Amino acid sequence: MPGMSPTTRRVRNRRGEGDLLRNEIVSAAERLVEQAGGDETLTLRAIAREAGISAPSIYAHFEDLAAVRDAVLDAGFDRLSQAIDDSTSTLDLATDPVRRLLAGCRAYVDFAMREPASYRLLFSRGRPSVDTPDREDQAPPPSDPTSPGLDGIPPAKQHHLDAFRMLIDGVSSCVAAGRSTSTDPVADATALWTALHGAVSLRQHLPKFPWPPLHEATDRFAVELAHLTPA
């Protein structure tokens, strides 16, 4: 109408900028988690301050604080899997299955020790569990005969077990190459995962205990629990 000032409209983000801001919010939350040693004191206001934005801006990307925490959890699992993948990408699966398995195990424990708060958050109480469906009506993923026991995990949380699947693949590859006598790669990968998790968790809680060198212990776990044999 004549005489009325035009309505001020918010300028839309250019293509890709929305995802960029979302990633910045998650990164800010991750930094706060590491600084505080956990996510118990995490707030939207603190995240916004760390990201250099206003708190209401977060709601354009996340419904609430719980959604941000879920995104932090997802990002942590993704970084863990990426760390393992990066450590083994230069090693040939066919000719170096044992070296790949050992490198992957070392990358796992290195990540846990490098980002202790983020790692603890991945498996802490109160976080969404991989065996808890996102929605009651969500269909389970297709059956995977190579990963018994993983059926029923919601598709949105399947990637939380990528690191475990890498261990299964690693043990299976050693068996195929004649470098492991394992008769149950899934069970042996589970035992190996348990040992790796226990090793880093105990070191974080008892740092002054006279532990053996971490990589030395990690290699021993892999050799014994994956039933590796000499070349």
Rank of each mutant, 00 (worst) to 15 (best):
V72W: 01
I168Q: 13
G76H: 02
N13C: 11
P210F: 14
A28V: 15
E115R: 08
A48L: 12
L80E: 12
E40H: 06
Q35N: 08
I58E: 11
H61Y: 15
N23I: 12
V98S: 01
T7P: 05
R125N: 09
A217Q: 10
S118C: 07
D169A: 14
A75K: 03
P207A: 04
D110N: 05
S124I: 11
R120V: 07
P230E: 06
S27H: 13
A75V: 00
A117N: 10
V171W: 15
I53Y: 05
D144G: 03
L73V: 15
L121C: 06
I47N: 15
V130C: 09
D74F: 05
R114W: 00
L101Q: 00
L91E: 01
D74Y: 04
H160V: 03
L102N: 01
Y59I: 05
P207S: 11
A66W: 09
L91D: 00
T146C: 11
Y59M: 06
F123P: 00
Y108P: 03
R125Y: 08
G198F: 07
R203Q: 15
D19H: 09
A156M: 09
G152D: 15
A48N: 02
P230Q: 04
G170Y: 02
P133S: 09
P148Y: 05
E24I: 03
A67S: 11
S147F: 06
A71E: 12
A226D: 12
L192P: 11
V33W: 00
V109D: 11
L122M: 14
A67H: 04
S201Y: 13
A94V: 15
R15Y: 04
L32K: 01
N23R: 14
L161Q: 02
H160F: 11
A83M: 01
T218H: 01
P128M: 05
A67Q: 14
S182H: 09
G170K: 09
A191L: 15
V186A: 14
P116N: 13
G16I: 10
G126P: 02
L202P: 02
S57P: 04
V98R: 01
L102S: 00
E24D: 07
E224Y: 06
H159A: 10
P230D: 12
L73C: 08
I47V: 15
L161I: 10
A156H: 01
P128Q: 07
R69V: 14
P142V: 07
R22T: 12
G149E: 06
A36Y: 08
T7L: 06
R10T: 15
A71P: 06
D144S: 07
D39A: 15
V186N: 01
S129V: 07
A103D: 05
D137S: 07
D19W: 04
A176T: 14
A177F: 10
S81H: 02
R45H: 08
D162Y: 03
P128F: 02
Q82T: 04
Q82V: 00
A226Q: 10
T88C: 11
E34R: 02
E136T: 11
R22W: 07
E115L: 02
P145L: 05
G149F: 06
G37P: 02
T7I: 12
L225N: 01
R100V: 05
P6G: 04
D134S: 04
A199L: 10
L73Y: 13
R125W: 10
L150E: 14
H227A: 09
L32W: 13
R203N: 12
S57V: 10
L80N: 06
G126A: 11
P97T: 13
V171L: 15
G3W: 12
